[in-house]
Amino acid sequence: MWKVILRRVLIMIPEIILLSILVFLLAKMMPGDPFTGSINPRAGTAEIHHLMRINGLYDPWYQQYWNWIVHLFHGNLGQSYQYHESVANLIGQRAENTLWLSLFTMVLTYLIALPMGMYAGRHEGKLPDTIIRIYTYVTYCIPFFVILVVGLWIFGYVLNWFPTTGSISATASGFSGTILSRFYHMLLPGLLGALFSTVNIVQYLRSEVIDAKRSDYVKTARAKGVPEKAIYRHHIFRNSLLPIAAFGGYSITGLLNGSIFTESIFSYPGMGLLFVNSISYRDYTVITALVLLFGILNLLGTLLSDIILGIVDPRIRIK
């Protein structure tokens, strides 16, 4: 098993190199530059050209790429043009916020989705199942950002139940006060995110349970005289959860994608918001670093899924 993991990690190296080239080129292909509008408005184009030149932005792409990679290996992700701060610092501050929000969303998602999917599958065709199905279809049809905006409007502005921006209130103090304030700020975006991401898991789990219910091995268990409750506990639920467990790794991808919407709409200072801002400022160093980071996290998510599956499913023993 360890050999396979090592091999998979080694395979990731060329993947990451390829990804970095692609990311770098795409960032460079964006029109515009990081200086127009950010310096002294009376400065002429000559000054911008000068800034572009001393920052190496007129060099051929492979040279720029090479410089970037060399710096990367020295642990230097470069300076943000927008914030005049090192990119590593910049991301470091936000990563924590995104991590907490993503973890919170993930926990909520599974807390909602697992009981819902199992219940719907077990009581297929009954009224609660119909309601759950309607919920999943309706939610699936609405774009994520619409859910977020409407949720923010209703619960944040109209009802005024939740804070509408930020990750912590400025007046929060003390250890427990900080934690509570953080939690309070995550509650609405986390709930809305979970509401959206449960949909796939509920539908998947529901159909897994229905399949398992009709499987031959469940018939065997019935013929053994195993009571219905135990059949669900030992046979149906366990076997249906397997693909969901494997899904876990991939859900990192979904959370990162989701963070871009959630954080921009809730002005939540995380990586997603930073990413959107950097794109509008053409803050190349931040964009490339973030996309590369997202890419690596995705690859790790996939690897994690395979490892989880290898552990929980005896048929996929990695040798």
């Binding site: 499987s215 031959d216 091995y217 018939k219 005289g225 046979h235 499913d313 005896p314």
Partner: peptide, 21 residues
């Protein structure tokens, strides 16, 4: 109480009649 104890059943398809996990 009867199933499995007093009546046993052998199924048609041995490939799917056992729990894979």
């Amino acid at each position: 109480k009867i199933r499995g104890a007093k009546i046993g059943m052998i199924f048609q398809d041995p490939l799917s009649a056992l729990n894979p996990l």
